[in-house]
């Protein structure tokens, strides 16, 4: 068994002939938060999407190397991409609730897993909403459309939706970049809470956010992993000049 909950070994990714990720080896220990930072177009979102194989959706994408979840390669033959995604939850940059009720949004993952027990579904929805710190705000309006919620609430609903199926890993793709500062703070608090139960990989272009929420930070530049270190070390004492330049705001 590997030490890491999720990891990549020598992974390269190509869009047609363009190489977007270059030979990346990186691991995330269980119940830790790892942040990926780097300038736009450095491949950090692409890297994140390796772990639930969302890159598969794009035509012409080719992946080399191993992407491991619990030490097993999720790109191996015979692995169902849907099974991977049920284990690895994802929260997107822009909140993307389904145009259904709040309740149905959270229950969706259970329903596609064939769960029909009504009480179990209700309990799970409540648990997930509580975990996402949204329960108190919506408990009287579960039948209301999710689209009626504010942006910050929508994003927490999307987190609750991901939590309902009890994944072990959560991927977050700039989860608060589209939100106001107060909602942003709530999401960051939430990440601290979630870390107790989940392993979290988060992409952000907000370096303060990375410093606040993560245990480890990886710096990507032009598809390469430049530096990976404990967050406080990386920000106070970067070893690579490019990292130094980026965190001091000289480019990006």
């Amino acid at each position: 068994m590997s030490y890491f909950k999720i990891e990549t070994r020598n992974v390269s990714l190509y869009y047609g002939n363009t190489q977007a990720l270059k030979n990346i080896t990186l691991g995330v220990p269980e119940n830790k938060v790892v942040a990926i930072i780097g300038p736009s177009g450095c491949g950090k979102s692409t890297y994140l999407r390796l772990f639930n194989r969302m890159n598969d959706m794009i035509d012409g994408v080719r992946v080399e190397g191993e992407v491991l979840l619990n030490g097993k390669n999720i790109y191996a033959d015979g692995v169902r991409v849907e099974d991977v995604r049920k284990r690895v939850g994802m929260v997107f940059q822009k909140p993307n609730p389904f145009p259904k009720s709040i309740f149905e949004n959270v229950a969706y993952g259970l329903r596609i897993n064939g769960v029909t027990n009504k009480r179990y579904i209700e309990e799970t929805v409540e648990r997930a909403l509580r975990q996402a710190a949204l329960w108190d705000e919506v408990k009287d309006n579960l039948k209301k459309s999710a689209l009626a919620l504010s942006g910050g609430q929508q994003q927490r609903l999307c987190i609750a939706r991901a939590l309902a199926v009890e994944p072990s890993v959560i991927l977050m793709d700039e989860p608060s970049s589209a939100l106001d500062p107060i909602s942003n703070a709530k999401i960051e608090e939430l990440i601290w809470e979630l870390k107790k139960k989940y392993t979290i990989l988060i992409v952000t272009h907000n370096m303060q956010q990375a410093a606040r929420v993560s245990d480890w930070t990886a710096f990507f530049y032009l598809g390469e992993l430049i530096e990976y270190a404990e967050t406080k070390d990386l920000f106070t004492n970067p070893r690579n000049e490019k990292t130094q330049n980026y965190i001091t705001g000289r480019f990006g």
Binding site: E82, A162, V165
Partner: peptide
């Protein structure tokens, strides 16, 4: 249909 809907659904493990 907004692409976010597709992503959300696939990310949940829907076929």
């Amino acid at each position: 249909v907004p692409p976010g809907i597709r992503e959300a659904s696939f990310a949940m493990g829907a076929t």
